[in-house]
């Protein structure tokens, strides 16, 4: 019994880390740079699939499972391949969408690109085994450590947590840097940022690619933990879960992304998956789950649009105080 509980908690913990990485990635794209990416989950899939086919061995004739590559690469290389592939797809979508399109059109382009990739991957059985998906993906260090499944889950939780913390620190550094500030300026007013000398296309492309890499790494962790990935696991509704997490937590705030992923992704989306299904109505729980997430988003937007943990004001520590500063302001306040 304790074994089941440990496994359950470890699994929820891993999902928490993964959703965290996904929503921080989306926060870099949307929260920093204002890019309406309506196909977040596609980058997760690309990262996962590419890491999968890089760490799987060559396809076995007669197994009826077909996929590209099959390189049996060690896990760090596979992760690099997954992250890079997600970044490249983000770059490709950015090339189409970021140059001249207004944000609402950009959203449609990302949605369309996601659907195209979904169709390609699902219907072409030779790339990632179509709708059947990849199975039996080797887990990092599992062969070396020789742990039982529960202990391995705990180990993987630590592994995912370390990666999450590294990505979290990097995202905060980016946010607090002049680069992050320039990205937020493009979010606030693209035309004005451009008129003040910012290369807005380059800034937004950077945010797009970095965010895609984050989400791609989330995908790598996903396929390693589950050891399988099929299109059913990355439908459009999954994109909605990441968006819900960011909106509830607080757009622009990495701390908000963490709280949001905990509330939406872990408590509502994943924890409820382990409830026993009601035999007379097996689809009841999933449907109630979606209703709850939708209601949570509506309540947030109505009563706390800035999210649970809103974006914080930028601080400039260590600046000298000005004794005469207040006097000079009197004029402006009459205005």
């Amino acid at each position: 019994m304790t074994g089941i509980i440990v496994g359950y908690i470890a699994t929820l913990g891993v999902y928490f880390c993964i959703y965290n990485i996904l929503s921080i990635g989306l926060n870099i794209q949307f929260g920093y740079a204002g890019i309406l990416d309506f196909t977040v989950i596609t980058f997760m899939a690309i990262g996962g699939y590419m890491a999968g086919v890089a760490s799987l061995g060559p396809e076995q004739p007669g197994s009826q499972i077909f996929y590209i590559l099959g390189l049996s690469l060690p896990w760090p290389v596979a992760m690099l391949i997954g992250a890079t592939a997600a970044g490249l797809v983000g770059c490709a979508i950015g090339l189409i969408a970021l140059r001249r399109l207004r944000s609402d059109y950009l959203a449609i382009v990302t949605l369309a690109a996601g659907s195209i990739i979904y169709g390609l991957v699902g219907n072409n059985t030779k790339i990632f085994d179509g709708f059947e998906g990849l199975v039996g993906v080797p887990q990092p260090l599992n062969g070396v450590l020789n742990l039982n499944p529960n202990s391995y889950s705990l180990f993987f939780l630590g592994f995912a947590a370390v990666i999450m913390v590294i990505l979290w620190v990097a995202a905060n550094r980016l946010r607090n840097s002049p680069l992050g500030r320039a990205m937020r300026a493009t979010r606030e007013d693209l035309e004005v940022a451009e008129a003040y000398g910012k290369n807005t296309y380059k800034l937004r492309m950077m945010a797009m690619v970095i965010g895609s890499i984050y989400v791609g790494i989330g995908g790598v962790l996903t396929i390693w933990y589950i050891t399988a990935l099929a299109p059913a696991g990355w439908g459009t509704s999954e994109t909605f879960v990441v968006w819900a997490a960011l909106i509830v937590g607080g757009v622009g705030s990495n701390g908000g992304a963490v709280i949001g992923s905990f509330l939406v992704a872990v408590v509502f989306n994943e924890a409820t998956r382990f409830l026993p299904s009601i035999s007379s109505n097996p689809s009841l729980i999933p449907e109630v789950r979606n209703i709850c997430i939708g209601a949570l988003v509506i309540l947030t937007l109505r009563f706390r649009p800035q999210g649970v943990l809103p974006e914080r004001k930028a601080k400039f520590p260590g600046l000298p105080e000005r004794p005469f500063g207040e006097k000079a302001t009197a004029v402006a306040e009459e205005v």
């Binding site: 500030r181 320039a182 606030e188 007013d189 910012k198 930028a314």
Partner: peptide, 16 residues
């Protein structure tokens, strides 16, 4: 006037 609304006044200058 098109300020960067959700950024502080000081930040508005620091972008330039």
């Amino acid at each position: 006037s098109r300020e960067y609304p959700a950024m502080t006044v000081l930040e508005n200058l620091m972008v330039s």
